[in-house]
């Protein structure tokens, strides 16, 4: 252990531990990126480079994987992550109105973070709670049967 090797000069040993845990195993790139993102909230370039170096892979390959999957963020996110469902069941029950409401309340576009850094808005295709459509999730809490009025109430809680 000891000094962090994520490239930045942080003192976080968790990142090093993750790399060591997956050392020498096959098919570990995605879980390593997932764990790294859990620690850092996003994947800074130096982290991607550090992972590439450690596993002896070209930077382009690791970067290619990180940009392929919707889960990975290359920019820091807001304090709270709002996921408004854009799935079919939500769409036919007025999901667009919910998304518009969130956008106008927070003055952000999908994929952006609000100016005060409090919220990031990420559209998602189906949260698997289609029976309660339209649905959104803030961090780990799912809110269903939404109306634009409820959105205002819910956002006020954060």
């Amino acid at each position: 252990m000891g000094k962090c090797c994520c490239g930045s000069d942080c003192q976080d040993s968790r990142f090093t531990e993750i790399l060591e845990q997956y050392k020498g195993k096959d098919g570990v790139l995605i879980p390593v990126l997932q764990k790294a993102q859990e620690i850092k909230g996003y994947l800074p370039e130096e982290t991607i480079r550090a992972i590439a170096d450690y596993f002896n892979k070209p930077y382009s390959e690791v970067y290619g994987v990180a940009t392929f999957y919707a889960q990975f963020r290359l920019k820091p996110s807001g304090e709270n992550i709002i996921r408004v469902c854009a799935g079919t069941a939500c769409h036919v029950r007025g999901g667009k109105k919910i998304l518009d409401k969130v956008c106008s309340e927070l003055n952000v576009a999908p994929g952006e973070t609000s100016a005060d850094g409090k919220f990031s808005l990420e559209p998602v295709a189906c949260l698997g709670a289609c029976g309660l459509a339209p649905v959104m999730m803030i961090n780990d809490t799912t809110y269903g049967r939404l109306t634009p009025e409820k959105v205002t109430e819910i956002l006020a809680k954060y």
């Binding site: 469902c85 854009a86 799935g87 079919t88 069941a89 939500c90 295709a125 189906c126 698997g128 709670a129 289609c130 029976g131």
Partner: peptide, 8 residues
């Protein structure tokens, strides 16, 4: 992976 939005 259940990707179809609207299936659960």
């Amino acid at each position: 992976d259940e990707g179809d939005p609207g299936a659960f």
